[in-house]
Simulated scan of single mutants.
Amino acid sequence: MTKKNYYVLSLFILSIFLGCKEEQKINPISENIVFKNYKDSINLSGTLSIPYKDGKFPAVILISGNGEHNRNAEFGNHKPFLDISNYLTNNGIAVLRYDKRGVEKSSGDYNSANTFDFAEDVNAAIDYLLARKDIQKNNIGLIGHSEGGLIAPIVASNSSNVAFIISLAGPSINGDKILLSQQKAIATSKGISEVEINKSQTLNRNAFEIVKKYNDKDVLREKMATYIEKISIDDSDKPENMTFEEYVDAQVNSILRPWMVNFLKYNPQKYIEQINCPVLVLNGSKDLQVLSKENLPEWKRILEESGNKSITIKELSDLNHLFQACETGLPDEYEKINESFSIIAMEEMTKWIKEQIK
């Protein structure tokens, strides 16, 4: 072998070695962690994933929507938060996800909590990341899905430690309007008659108005019970093994859950207009739970009128509320779809986050 060929071969071997080193650089490490919400005296269990052992990384906290979700936001065979975590970590971004209070390994009572309680859990997650030596303290962001998209603005409006937020199908209109819009969109897609839809809308709207009108818990329960009794006479939906009184009580308890009462009265604008950090808002065009045509324009209006200069708002074609490529967008499709979370949405988030990193 000539000296020249040996030199070329050596460079070739060296380039392979360096290439392997570069490939090995992103080798995600996941650590099961526990952090404490001192305000409510609960421990939250989760997983922190970092790109590799040594270094300091930008980080995001994943905030799930309404429901007793674990750290992976698991439903059926899908684990969308695990997929998002893996994708972001492989792109150099650390990810913290956790079991909601009262779910799996986290302590606390889920059923007695409302949106603001869940916001305190996010604050506790931020405090945990701020204490880590492997996290860039000036690059901690929030990614909130659905109700998580309500929670992220609450946290960001009261914290200087939030560098950016991403809303995934997060509401920007009042809670009662969200539910009425959701119910109508789903019923329409199922082919329910306009007469039946209008009847249901009226019944629900009246119930929601009662919740919004009365603040005293005892008075609210009395007024709601009277209303539910009135509209439930001869209700064909009453199970045969349940008395009328039990049926009424079950409906009253459902609508007067702490979370529901808070949600029906909730106005997102109060917190969205206080966001000073960069914001990315994404919605699927086939989302029937938080409709993009109603919520995206409001996000844009509120943020622009409040003076936020760093806004990106996008509708993603053919994605449902869970950011899956779908046919109808109906909730009964969710578990049947093979995709857990759209790669297109993950690419959008990753590209945008990298642009925000300081």
Rank of each mutant, 00 (worst) to 15 (best):
K3C: 05
Y6E: 12
I13T: 13
I13A: 14
L18R: 04
I29T: 05
S41C: 04
I42W: 03
S49M: 13
D54Q: 15
D54Y: 14
D54H: 09
K56H: 09
P58E: 06
V60K: 01
N72Y: 08
N72G: 13
D83N: 11
I93N: 00
R97A: 11
R97L: 11
Y110A: 04
V122L: 12
I126C: 01
Y128H: 10
I135F: 07
I135W: 01
I135L: 07
Q136S: 14
K137N: 11
I140A: 04
G149H: 00
I151N: 01
I151Y: 02
A152E: 07
P153W: 06
I154A: 01
A156G: 04
N158K: 15
I165Q: 01
I178A: 00
I178L: 04
I178Y: 00
K184F: 07
I186C: 02
K190V: 03
S193A: 05
N198H: 03
S200L: 06
T202H: 07
N204H: 07
I210E: 06
I210S: 09
K212V: 08
N215E: 14
K217M: 08
R221L: 08
R221M: 06
K223H: 06
E229R: 15
I231H: 09
I233A: 10
S236H: 04
P239L: 06
M242V: 12
F244H: 09
Y247C: 09
Y247V: 04
V248C: 06
S254E: 12
I255G: 10
Y271P: 00
E273A: 08
E273S: 14
P278N: 11
Q289R: 03
V290N: 01
N295E: 11
P297E: 12
W299G: 00
S310K: 15
E315T: 09
N320I: 01
F323Q: 04
A325Y: 03
E327T: 13
Y334M: 12
N338M: 10
A345W: 02
M346V: 10
E347A: 14
E347T: 14
